[in-house]
């Protein structure tokens, strides 16, 4: 049976704009639940460039993606938002009473009066290598993650990549696979040195093969691969293979957002610039995922959008209630919410 959670607001995406939305919503006494496909907050800031400097956040001459995320998490802590990581929202349905029912791929149902989509460039998903026809083999014999080790038992496994995922799975699967070949475009790895050493030992002992090269094409039928064709420094090569695991990192895809009945423009969600509401009343979109005339994909723009969105969200959650505009510097009421007064 699925878990059911009822809340004021569900925020889809825990990147910087989504996180700040919890602050603005919190000041208005709205409770937030976050849903994010990644395993931690920060979105692009922590997934793509955690250590890279950002120079255009007001008040911070320089801050890294990780620091900005850590600071936002500290800033919203008084409002105790709840986080649901490693899951994706599959569907949003408007209910008769105007609220929304969201279903995730982790078999949960969220009931919310307001939905805020702060999903950046969409959801982070494994990068598909540019190999013709690879889609036909996905989830049958080509996998981008290992869910069940047993799927690889007794198989001829080819792993592609030079990062930690490729190395870790090479070490884990070599003992149960019938054969295992690691393919990387060069003999330089960006992985834990201990794993690289261990892999090299296994290769020296003949327990695995390591080849420098890239996948050129795949052979097979009915979803089942039979051969992986490689271009290598030593010329073209064909490997018999029954399982392929490409590990090329993550990329952003719009994903299920496209199916939620919202007006879109070039993979972004169209909103107004008063409330940042989508074509469906009660569903808002802020940050990189929205578009409106003059839109700039800047974190600071998303912060502004979050503040205006929160006012409109409050009017939906608490209809008829007068919203008093206050400053955190002077309002004892707001300071109490922040735990400082």
């Amino acid at each position: 049976m699925s878990t059911e959670i009822t809340t004021d607001v569900v925020v889809i995406g825990a990147g910087p704009c989504g996180l700040f939305a919890a602050f603005e919503l919190g000041l208005l006494d709205l409770k937030c639940h976050f849903i994010d496909i990644l395993d931690r907050p920060g979105g692009q800031c922590t997934e793509l460039y955690p250590e890279k400097p950002i120079y255009d956040i007001p008040g911070f001459p320089v801050v890294t993606g990780q620091q900005l995320t850590d600071n936002l998490m500290a800033q919203i802590a008084p409002f105790a938002p709840e986080f649901h990581f490693n899951r994706m929202v599959n569907s949003i349905e408007k209910q008769a009473d105007g609220s929304f029912k969201l279903a995730t791929d982790a078999d949960e149902i969220f009931n919310a009066k307001v939905v805020v989509i702060a999903a950046g460039g969409g959801s982070f998903q494994p990068k598909r290598p540019p190999v013709n026809g690879i889609e036909a083999f996905e989830n049958t014999s080509v996998f981008y993650s290992v869910r069940k080790m047993d799927d690889f038992r007794g198989q001829d496994v080819v792993i592609v990549g030079g990062g930690d995922s490729a190395l870790d799975w090479t070490l884990s699967l070599q003992s149960i696979a019938r054969s295992l070949t690691l393919v990387h475009r060069r003999a330089v790895f960006k992985a834990a040195p201990a794993s690289v050493n261990k892999m090299q030992e296994l290769a020296a002992e003949g327990k695995i093969n390591f080849l420098t090269g890239q996948i050129a094409s795949l052979d097979g039928e009915n979803g089942q691969i039979s051969h992986v064709h490689l271009t290598t420094d030593a010329g073209d090569l064909s490997l018999p293979a029954t399982r392929l695991l490409p590990f090329f990192g993550l990329t952003m895809k719009l994903g299920p957002v496209a199916d939620w009945g919202l007006e879109l423009n070039d993979n972004t969600i169209v909103v107004d610039t008063e409330k940042f509401q989508t074509s469906v009343p009660g569903i808002f979109a802020i940050g990189d995922i929205n578009s409106y005339p003059g839109k700039l994909k800047l974190i600071l723009s998303g912060f502004h959008e979050a503040a205006l969105m929160a006012q409109a969200a409050k009017a939906i959650v608490s209809p008829g209630e007068r919203i008093v505009f206050q400053y955190t510097t002077s309002s004892t009421k707001l300071q109490k919410k922040l735990g400082v007064a």
């Binding site: 290598p129 990549g161 960006k190 890239q214 090329f248 990192g249």
Partner: peptide, 11 residues
């Protein structure tokens, strides 16, 4: 940049 190029399959 070489490290980043590791994340595409058509180098």
């Amino acid at each position: 940049e070489e490290d980043m190029l590791d994340s595409v399959g058509d180098v």
